[in-house]
Amino acid sequence: MLQRTIAEPTEVVGIGLHKGDSVRLRIEPLDADSGIIFYRSELGRSIPLSPEAVIDTRMATVIGTPEGYISTIEHFLSALYAHGIDNLRVVLEGNEMPIMDGSAVSFCLLIQEAGIRSLERPKPFLKIKRPVEVRDGDKFARLEPSDRIEFDFTIDFPHPAIGRQRLYFDFTLANYMEEIARARTFGFARDIQYLQSQNLALGASLQNAIGLDEHKVLNPEGLRYPDEFVRHKILDAMGDMMVTGHNLLGRYTAFAGSHDLNHKLTLKLLADAQNYEIVALEQIRSPHYERCFA
Rank of each mutant, 00 (worst) to 15 (best):
R4Y: 12
V279D: 13
L248W: 13
A204Y: 07
A161C: 04
F157K: 04
I128T: 12
A183Y: 06
Q198R: 14
R4A: 08
E74T: 04
G35K: 01
G102W: 04
R58W: 10
V23I: 15
G115Q: 12
T61R: 09
A79F: 02
G35W: 01
L2H: 14
M1W: 12
I55H: 15
I284Q: 08
V23Y: 11
A53Y: 14
G94S: 10
Q198S: 13
M241F: 09
G187V: 06
R4N: 11
G163A: 01
S50E: 11
H288V: 11
T65V: 03
V279N: 14
L235D: 13
A79T: 03
M177F: 00
G211E: 05
D152M: 07
P226S: 03
D213C: 05
E179R: 14
F151P: 03
G14A: 01
G250L: 03
I116S: 09
P160T: 07
E214G: 11
T244I: 05
L248M: 15
A204S: 03
F151A: 11
N219Y: 01
I47W: 06
I278R: 15
R291W: 03
Y225F: 14
V13P: 07
L235V: 08
P98A: 02
F255A: 10
Q112E: 15
Q196A: 09
N95V: 00
E74P: 06
Y69S: 09
L167M: 15
G211M: 02
K216D: 10
D86V: 05
R148Q: 07
R26I: 04
T253I: 13
R142N: 04
E277L: 04
S103K: 13
D101A: 01
R182L: 00
M238K: 12
V243K: 10
I128P: 06
L110S: 00
A201D: 09
R148H: 13
R26L: 04
E67R: 13
R135H: 12
G239T: 02
R291T: 08
G44Q: 02
I47P: 11
P145Q: 09
L92N: 06
V105D: 15
Y252K: 08
N208K: 08
V217G: 00
D138P: 14
E113A: 14
A82M: 02
G64Y: 03
I47G: 08
S46I: 04
K129C: 13
I6P: 03
D156W: 07
P158A: 00
V243R: 10
A114L: 05
I284C: 06
S258Y: 10
R4F: 05
S41E: 10
M59R: 15
K268W: 02
G84I: 02
E8G: 04
A189L: 13
L80C: 09
E113V: 06
G20N: 05
D260P: 02
I15N: 09
H263Q: 07
E113M: 07
I63E: 15
G84V: 00
M100Q: 14
I36C: 00
S50G: 07
N262R: 05
Q165S: 08
